[in-house]
Design a binder for these strands. Sequence first.
DNA 1: TATAATAGGTAACAATTACTTAACCTCAAT
DNA 2: ATTGAGGTTAAGTAATTGTTACCTATTATA
Lengths: 224, 224
Amino acid sequence: MNTQKILLVDDEPDILEFIRYNLEKEGYKVFTASNGVKAIELAQKENPQLIILDVMMPDMDGIETCNEIRKIDKLKNAVIAFLTARNEDYTQIAGFDAGADDYINKPIKPKVLVSRVKALLRRINGEQDGTALTLGGIEIDREKYIVRKEGKEYNFPRKEFELVALLMSKPGKVFTREEILSRVWGDDVVVGDRTIDVHIRKLREKLGDEYIRTIKGVGYKFEF
Amino acid sequence: MNTQKILLVDDEPDILEFIRYNLEKEGYKVFTASNGVKAIELAQKENPQLIILDVMMPDMDGIETCNEIRKIDKLKNAVIAFLTARNEDYTQIAGFDAGADDYINKPIKPKVLVSRVKALLRRINGEQDGTALTLGGIEIDREKYIVRKEGKEYNFPRKEFELVALLMSKPGKVFTREEILSRVWGDDVVVGDRTIDVHIRKLREKLGDEYIRTIKGVGYKFEF
DNA sequence: TATAATAGGTAACAATTACTTAACCTCAAT
DNA sequence: ATTGAGGTTAAGTAATTGTTACCTATTATA
């Protein structure tokens, strides 16, 4: 296997060097950038498998940088992790929307960092793990495209699967109809108003009514 | 040839006796154990060529038992098969990590059981494999480019072989059309839309419809 | 070398499944 | 009571996949 490339983005040199040290010790090839613009340049050039972004940065913050990176085609498959201070709840929500794959909390502990990085990189190299998400007895497995409930497996049609996966990706968060349309159907597709309802209904039929809650006038959320 | 020893482990006496009856009829020497601890003891003493483990057992489940057995040096070459209920959480593919060689689905049909056991034992006696992979009664041999099903051998054309080998390499995982094209045909080859379908059809014709499942809008996967 | 057999691919159409819509219903807030 | 948001159902529509027959290239066989 090729040496893995990691791009590290933070405005604090100390943190940059601290993380670099710990990752290079593990044999990774580490690139660093001190701001979003440089990060994007480097990412274009080096095509890293994993990008670690500090959320809090001057000028262009991590989320914005993430959004820009996600627009670059050849980086579509890169794994992006955010560095955040503990308990930055709002940030996290925005971060998942931006397509983050994981969060790493500061202060950083070397061991945690390394094992997390390994787990994230394993995802790319096909190896089993991390693909399943379990919440309130319901498990969705992206890789196998299966939903499990109480040991039984169900094959959901594509839209239903994407919909439940979206809602579960951020349990408790209310997804507006707009958001749902944009992320499950795509921005250019135009569908009628009742389409979402019908899909929600099908999900409730299969999972039970207790998981998906309607927030009238706002949207839907997953609860457990 | 020496009489072959088979160790059977299940907590349900009925199943134990049912299988024992069918295997003894074929001339095998069958030992039974009702739990993992006894199984390990017996395995140590009798050194069976084949061990059939029920996955679901109280206290020490099949996978755990398997892990313990694999630690015993003289049992390194034993073939281990799991008994599983159909549609049971495929999580057990974790069983492969534990070093399982095959899965046998419940409910058990005598004929299927016997031919399966024969196929597994054939591996030990004489025919050295190393590159063979057996799943749900289908065995693919990368070296000889041969597919075996219930004792019969089939010569698959290259593409068909590569396709089934790919799907079986990660049972349960959905391979997108894109992935399949890239890995069986290569990234630069351009083939029409229906090409994959036709090959899938040929495989289903030869193996039976129950192995390859279509996930509409996503891809195909191997199931057993 | 001619001929046959096999493998791989394509096109046309059938079948299936998923998705969307329309029409109508319910419920709660004003 | 009226309105508006969402729920429900059945049926229509679109998209994806299955199937068959046929063509071409390659490899085996006489």
